[in-house]
Amino acid sequence: MVNPATTEFSQLDEGDSVAFMPLEAIWPGSKCDYSRTLPWSPNLSYVQFRRGDVLVPKITPTFEAGRTIVADIPSRVGLASTEVHVVRANEGADPRFLRYTFQSQPFLDEGANSLQGVGNLRRITPRFVQDYRVLDASAEVQAVLCDYLDRETGEIDAIIDRLDGLAEVLRYRAAIVSTRQVCGLFESHDGAQRSVHSPLAGIPEHWGRTKFGYDFTESTERNGDHPPGPLLSISEYRGVELNTRTEGQQASLDVSKYRVVRPGQLAANMMWLNHGGLGVSSLTGYISPDYKAFWISDRFEPRYVHHLFRSSRYIDYFAAIATGVRPNAQRVTKTVLDATPVPLPPRDEQVRIADELDEATARVDAMLTKVADLKALLLERRAALITDVVTGKKEVA
């Protein structure tokens, strides 16, 4: 059954704690988050489900990522995002078999072709899920197939988790090295890094000091009727890059008011500075009108600026000065940014530091690319295995 009634909610008292599954918590394997709860109220508009139901994300691109789960929640019933379909297995059917079927490539391919809606808000319909043909197998055979897939995909998922951990370690170590270099930090004799109280704490005495507003001038150039280049995005991992994503930030039909970015300018997402949402561009293009672009004074080497403001010291500093109610919408205002202290090493030192960090970053990027390639192969293997089993192409003893 798709989106069935969950009568158990009629037995709850208002204020009773129930599990809550927003879309960002719905992931297969170890990424799934069952820790969230909500106090029950009949006025809540979330989707109701019970423990053991199958939750199928219905909106692109979450659907296409195959993020279907069996809801193994701690409470008897739960509430989920309205962007999921609830599927309840019939008596004698194994919900795990439905989950694997909904993660198989034929289901995802057919679903992608049946999405309804426009732009980034297309969804699969409950009718598509209801009518999808599932392999006709007895409960005993389903259990055997699911036990096999649990073992095999569990091993693959464990390797993927280790690869994700390796990628995080690589990024963390790169951030530490970058911070020490661009801020002129050195370890004391006992190996402890000097404590950080401000962006200028512990910098070499011969370095100058300035403020952001003195050396960074906001550019007001807009596209107008003739954009000078393509849409660009600002990645927390890579900085300013060509926007090739099919989800997330997309330009509207009218891009005349979008902000132009030129090579050598600093581009910044003012609501994402505390996550590394800025960088010096090597491209000509345009970014969201909500972002900013800055000309950099001749006193700075642009590559040094790129590494400086993306260092862990400045990310922490931006987090401290940002304001806003929502955790993922902490904005740094232009006035506060202009007052931000900035170290000013001699120009030749900036070039040396930038050269060293460019080389170090290239090495880390190469390792991250290898990790990503291996992860992609494992995910492809996982998807193929699930597809072969749930479609009956692979025999399981």
Rank of each mutant, 00 (worst) to 15 (best):
R299K: 13
A397C: 11
G117I: 00
Q130C: 09
F212T: 04
R36N: 09
A25F: 01
H306R: 08
K394L: 15
V169H: 13
A80T: 03
L166Q: 14
T335F: 05
L115W: 01
P74D: 03
W295N: 15
A376H: 09
D298A: 12
I315R: 15
R96P: 14
Q142I: 06
E380L: 10
R133C: 04
Q249D: 13
Y314Q: 02
Y304L: 09
Y237R: 14
T387C: 04
L79K: 03
T62A: 08
V336C: 00
K257S: 15
N3D: 14
D147N: 11
V280D: 03
R151Q: 12
G229P: 01
I156G: 03
Y304V: 06
V336R: 09
R122W: 05
L273H: 04
G119E: 03
P343A: 05
Y132E: 01
D290S: 10
Q181E: 15
L232W: 01
E247I: 01
P4A: 02
Q130G: 13
L12M: 04
W272Y: 11
T82H: 04
P42A: 10
I203Y: 11
I160R: 06
P343F: 08
R381Q: 12
A93H: 13
P22R: 05
L23N: 08
G165I: 05
L79H: 03
R352H: 10
L378W: 06
T6C: 13
Y100L: 00
P106M: 07
L374C: 11
S281R: 07
V305Q: 07
R180N: 14
A268L: 04
E301G: 02
N113F: 08
W40R: 08
L115N: 02
R262M: 11
G15T: 01
P343W: 06
G224L: 02
P289K: 09
R67M: 13
A329M: 15
Q142F: 10
I386S: 12
V118D: 00
T37A: 06
R310M: 00
E218Y: 05
A354F: 09
R50W: 01
G29T: 09
A93Y: 08
P39D: 02
G392K: 03
P343Q: 08
P230W: 07
E395S: 14
N120C: 07
A5G: 12
A175Y: 05
I296L: 08
S188W: 11
V196T: 13
R382A: 04
A89E: 10
S104C: 03
Q130F: 10
K375N: 11
S35T: 14
D94A: 11
H189M: 12
N90Q: 14
S312H: 11
V182H: 10
H85F: 02
N269S: 13
A5T: 14
L23G: 12
D136T: 10
Q130K: 15
N43R: 14
P22Y: 04
L200I: 04
L357W: 04
N243S: 09
S282G: 13
R162G: 12
G324T: 06
T101M: 02
N243F: 06
M367E: 11
D161H: 07
V134Y: 07
R363A: 15
A320L: 12
S188A: 15
F309R: 00
R127M: 11
D215G: 13
R151E: 14
E359S: 13
Q265N: 09
A372L: 00
P345A: 10
G111I: 03
C146W: 00
I124Y: 01
